[in-house]
């Protein structure tokens, strides 16, 4: 054992000396880069820091990194990305740990706690980000193709038996969603007289896997889903028509019998950060893009396996005109 240690030590020393020699011939050093960074830091501008919450879904990631990369590369801001769930992000506004939530799907309860009207005023609405959230009932494409009438809610009972699983107790299974979303599916089902039972998937990952498998294996599946979402690039789910949304039809949760409304997704920012002002604040306020834009970047990330930074840079390079509009 000792002999081996000796030999190992000897080898390491030889290797180290060799690398030292090689290094002497090598190119630039870290000190050079440090100096370069220091001089660059001198002209950083007045943007300062942005603490960008990154909520856990790919579309959000796309928006956050596009805004973040514009801020850091074009305005010289220091951007800190923080991977957080929505609730935690909102808690961070008051402590300065979070400045921006770039895509909010509507959290009345959180608004009550953190907006100025009723809560502590640590957060504020920074306007819509241009994306429109569409929530509804979806089926895999093969099902829509094979049984087109399934896209009308009136015909669902006809197929209820085929939707049954080990979890649905003899009825058809309706796959409920990640609990993060507002859902009225139980009420809709009972008020439309559908012979279905809601089984909650519990997470987006579970829902997506279920749809992927259903499409691949030609299985019956219906569930709660939403756009924009990267899955549509891979499995273009079809939306089932429910009685259309009208103002007030979802006011009483127990009596809901209509479709979900389209949601204008919005930006939420920290009040104190907004008050400080600066080019970063202007960028976030000016940011707006379409569902297609977001889907494009989301595809780079989820389908093509690019890092979010690289995906964002690629889109920015292709769409500098849109970026310029935000910066005006």
């Amino acid at each position: 054992m000792r002999h081996i240690s000796w030999r190992a030590t000897g080898l390491t020393s030889v290797a180290a000396s060799a690398t030292l020699l090689l290094a002497a011939c090598g190119g630039g050093t870290i000190d050079d880069e440090t100096k370069a960074n220091e001089s660059k830091a001198g002209g950083a501008g007045e943007c300062g820091e942005i603490n960008m919450a990154v909520n856990p879904w790919v579309g959000y990631e796309a928006s956050a990194y596009v805004v973040g990369r514009v801020a850091s590369e074009q305005l010289g801001c220091k951007v800190n990305y923080k991977n957080l769930k929505e609730d935690v992000s909102w808690q961070g506004f008051g402590t300065g740990e979070v400045d921006v939530v770039i895509e909010d799907w509507g959290h009345p309860d959180l608004e009550k706690k953190f907006f100025a009207e009723e809560g502590d005023g640590s957060a504020m609405d920074a306007g819509p980000n241009g994306n429109v959230g569409i929530i509804g009932w979806y089926v895999p494409p093969w099902l829509a193709e094979e049984h087109p009438d399934i896209l009308e809610h009136e015909n669902l009972n006809k197929y209820a038996e085929q939707f049954a699983t080990s979890e649905s107790g003899g009825k058809g299974q309706f796959l409920g969603a990640d609990p993060s979303y507002v859902q009225f599916d139980e009420a809709i089902i009972s008020n439309l007289g559908l012979d279905f039972k809601v089984v909650f998937s519990g997470s987006e990952a579970a829902t997506i896997t279920a749809f992927q498998q259903a499409e691949k294996n030609k299985e019956f599946l219906i569930g709660y889903f939403y756009e924009p979402q990267w899955l549509f690039a891979e499995v273009p789910l079809e939306k089932v028509a429910l009685p259309p949304y009208e103002d007030g039809c979802q006011d009483d949760p127990a009596k809901v019998a209509c479709d979900y409304p389209e949601t204008d997704l919005k930006k939420i920012v920290s009040t104190s950060w907004e008050e400080e002002g600066g080019s970063g604040v202007d960028l976030v306020k000016g940011f707006t893009w379409t569902n297609d834009d977001q889907n494009q970047v989301a595809k780079y990330i989820s389908e093509d396996g690019m890092k979010p930074e690289d995906a964002a840079d690629k889109w920015i390079a292709d769409n500098q005109d849109k970026v310029d509009a935000w910066l005006e």
């Binding site: 769930k85 929505e86 609730d87 909102w90 959290h107 309860d109 959180l110 706690k113 979890e167 796959l175 990640d178 609990p179 993060s180 089984v199 909650f200 998937s201 519990g202 997470s203 990952a205 579970a206």
Partner: peptide, 23 residues
């Protein structure tokens, strides 16, 4: 973890509480 994969019950309630502030 069961709550995250469709098992419902207490696990789902915990996940729900973590996901939505009012819960």
């Amino acid at each position: 973890i069961g709550g995250l994969v469709g098992a419902g019950a207490l696990g789902y309630d915990v996940v729900l509480g973590f996901a939505r502030s009012e819960e």
